[in-house]
Nucleic acid binder design. Structure first.
Length: 745
DNA sequence: GCCTCTGGATTTTTT
DNA sequence: ATCCAGAGGC
């Protein structure tokens, strides 16, 4: 049987044990993804299970997409009807179909963190609470914590101890009311409401339980209580539940993931078969042994014995740079050296770090050297204002109750509806006990009982008519036509162009149009719905395209599940890794160590661990402390390198003391003591090359615009903008982080 | 009602 | 260092 060939005995076991609960404990690089895809293929091809009876849950949409591709490669036909996605996207689907019974309209919108924050602010305002005293972010965290433990506002009242708990309970309750009014759910609601739906309506649960005869859950160590509850509910009938995880890679406890789910699983499913995948196929012996040493420093864990047949390979290189600029320079120099030898290409390298802020220096340095890179996250496309505005219009079209979107767009582009008017409108709607949108309708129908002057009433009515017009259109035409209609009716182009970097913003809008186009084959209302869902539930890694000719910059968290031939881990300093916010809690330190472990085990061939002697954080430069984790890295597996600043500085110890005492800037200290940076800053930005490996003159292809020639590249704060001349469309400026430009030979 | 300026906060990780 | 919210001027 070809589905089983090439698997080792425990892998084979994991694929073939399809009845009853299975817990697969899979070490890094042990072929976990392979096992999952083969298992599904086995179910389909050998056991004759229908795709529609299988649910597979992944951590990211990207993982889901890749799994589908690999699966289809294996079974060599298109798999239709399989339920495959993240917990969030699967729950959204369930609630759209069956949420009505617990008061969720199928057209609900999903509020992201930004929307959540807006709504919380309004809630605070309603409750006469000072947002300075009760930080919306802290309340959001508390509410999210509550929801992750299935606590309703009522439960919260009963648990409340401190004054802050009391406040939180009140805010939570009111916030939920506001969400309900807006027909909106936040991320945590997607999970929690699904569990509640199943609890309150066993007949609905029964429907799903019967349908899904086989359940698979990846990254089980990072599930929270609600997700685990869902697994128990859905798998409760057939009990063919297979969960795959690695406690040593649990790094999301701050998102209320709970390792104890692994222990609970064996208790809740007493006949669980446990399968260990311990052979590593990814890394060299040196890397695997180093990683094992690191993780065995954790007290709260079960020891396990990972092994590999791979060659010993090269030592782990530990580097001490002078500061973060030099740290980045070392990375580049090393990469250029290895690429120069022809052994590796840029796509083989990943640079990993604890905090997103660390990517900045990397970017600056890579831009200066003209080395191609790609940053995961950073520029979050969907967080741009012009994008959020359009999306808010589209959301409001789908769901007139969406108060956050309404508030966002009612005066965009400016139509003379200011804060006063908006506050008055909210109050008026409240007094009539209708939604804001319905209040507008009343006004438009010509009531003489409104609190507005005729002029203001006219403005509001105009806005209402615009929305009605959009809504009518949305029922008739496909998504891009609707998109164009909205954008044109609003005069959005002119509006956007009047703002700084207008052209760039406009091109972003056009990129969004390109995304909309992908939903065009669905009939009118569905296209909009599926587009909006995709827009909210995407994550940053989802857009990462592996390989290619650029170095990957990525946080340690995002790196989970990925692999690269060569990995650099930056900022091996106490305060960064482990992060200073975790340092007084041993449990959290252990999680930081797991994070480090995840980073190291991403590497196939070689690992570099870097630290800086001095580092500037939040505007303050100070001398660092070596990460305590380096003490766990076995000395016989490492080699040290230096960027040479010790030797170049003749009085390094004096310099050290001086640094401690003197408030002089880095520039003062470094003059004459350290090699000058390779290029003066006036040489940036280099117009002829970009971090994506494109240069002026290259032929490229764009999904919408067709083929064109790059005529210029400009690096902005967090992105590269390419100016491309397209044959049919003319000259366009495109953001490379988003526009999928492929080079044509 | 809208725009600009300034002081204050802010940075851990994300579906 | 950078971003955001609130205050004050037009």
């Amino acid at each position: 049987m070809d589905i089983l060939s090439g698997l080792n005995p425990p892998q084979k076991d994991a694929v073939e044990t399809i009845s009853g609960p299975v817990l697969i404990l899979a070490g890094p690089g042990s072929g976990k993804t392979r096992v999952i895809t083969h298992r599904i293929a086995y179910l389909l091809r050998v056991c004759g299970v229908k795709p529609s009876h299988i649910m597979a849950v992944t951590f990211t949409n990207k993982a889901a997409r890749e799994m589908k591709e690999r699966l289809e490669g294996l079974v060599s036909f298109a798999v239709k009807g399989l339920t495959l996605g993240t917990f969030h996207s699967i729950c959204a689907r369930i609630l759209r179909r069956d949420g009505k019974i617990i008061g969720i309209e199928s057209g609900f919108v999903i509020y992201d963190d930004d929307d959540q924050k807006s709504l919380l602010k309004r809630t605070l305002h309603d409750l006469n609470l000072d947002p300075k005293q009760y930080a919306p972010s802290a309340l959001a965290a508390a509410i999210s914590a509550a929801k992750s433990q299935l606590l309703t506002p009522n439960d919260y009242y009963q648990r409340g101890r401190s004054y802050f708990d009391e406040i939180t309970a009140r805010v939570y309750e009111h916030y939920q009311k506001r969400l309900q009014e807006s027909n909106a759910l936040d991320f945590d609601d997607l999970l929690m409401k699904t569990v509640l739906l199943f609890r309150q309506h066993p007949e609905v649960l029964e429907k799903y339980q019967s349908r899904y005869t086989h359940l698979l859950v990846d990254e089980f160590q990072d599930t929270n209580l609600v997700q685990y509850e869902l697994i128990k509910q859905l798998g409760g009938k057939h009990r063919n539940v297979c969960v795959v995880g690695d406690p040593d890679q649990s790094i999301y406890s701050w998102r209320y993931a709970d390792i104890r789910n692994i222990l609970s699983f064996e208790k809740d499913f007493p006949d669980t078969k446990v399968i260990l995948l311990e052979q590593n196929y990814r890394s060299t012996k040196t890397i695997l042994e180093t990683a094992s040493k690191i993780i065995s420093a954790n007290q709260q864990r079960k020891p396990k014995k990972l092994w590999t047949d791979n060659a010993p390979g090269e030592p782990v290189t530990i580097v001490e740079a002078y500061n973060e600029q030099e740290e980045a320079q070392y990375v580049i120099t090393e990469i250029e050296k290895l690429v120069g030898r022809g052994e590796y290409s840029l796509g083989d390298f990943a640079v990993m770090y604890r905090t997103n802020a660390q990517s900045r220096v990397l970017e600056e340095t890579f831009i200066r050297y003209g080395t191609a890179y790609r940053l995961v996250a950073g520029t979050r496309f969907y967080e741009r204002k012009e994008i959020k505005d359009i999306v808010a219009y589209l959301r409001l079209i789908q769901n007139h109750s969406d108060s956050v979107s309404l508030a966002r767009v009612i005066n965009v582009p400016t139509r003379g509806i200011g804060e006063q008017t908006q506050a008055r409108l909210l109050n008026w709607a409240k007094s009539m006990n209708v939604s804001t949108y319905e209040a507008l309708r009343t006004l438009a129908q010509g009531t003489n009982d409104s609190p507005f002057t005729p002029g203001t009433a006219k403005q509001l009515t105009a806005f209402f008519n615009v929305m009605e017009n959009f809504t009518a259109k949305s029922r008739e035409v496909n998504l891009t036509d609707l998109f164009d209609f909205v954008v044109e009716s609003l005069g959005f182009k002119g509006y956007v162009f009047d703002q700084p970097e207008g052209e760039e913003r406009w091109d972003n809008v056009m990129e969004l149009r390109g995304v909309a186009q992908e939903h065009n084959d669905l009939p009118p209302p569905d296209g909009l719905a599926s587009f909006l869902e995709g827009v909210t539930l995407v994550s940053d890694v989802d857009s990462l395209q592996e390989g290619g000719s650029a170095v990957t910059f990525i946080t340690l968290h995002q790196a989970k599940g990925l692999e690269f031939p060569i990995v650099f881990i930056l900022g091996m300093e106490d305060g960064l890794l482990p992060h200073f916010r975790t340092i007084d809690d041993p449990a959290q330190i252990e999680e930081e160590r797991r994070l480090f472990y995840v980073g190291v085990t991403r590497a196939k061939k070689k690992v570099y661990l870097l630290r800086a002697f001095r580092r500037t954080l939040m505007g303050r430069s100070s001398i660092t402390t070596v990460s305590r984790f380096l003490a766990d890295v076995p000395g016989d597996k490492t080699s040290s390198a230096s960027t040479g600043w010790h030797e170049k500085a003749d009085f390094s110890s004096a310099l050290y003391a001086w640094n401690r005492l003197s408030p002089l800037s880095d520039a003062d200290l470094m003059s004459g003591q350290k090699a000058a940076p390779p290029l003066p800053s006036t040489a940036l930005p280099d117009p002829s090359t970009s971090r994506t490996g494109l240069k002026a003159g290259d032929r490229v292809r764009h999904s919408q615009f067709g083929e064109g020639t790059v005529i210029g590249l400009k690096t902005t704060r967090d992105d590269t903008e390419a100016t491309v001349a397209f044959a049919d469309i003319g000259v366009k400026k495109l953001l490379l982080s988003f526009a999928r430009l492929t080079k044509v030979a």
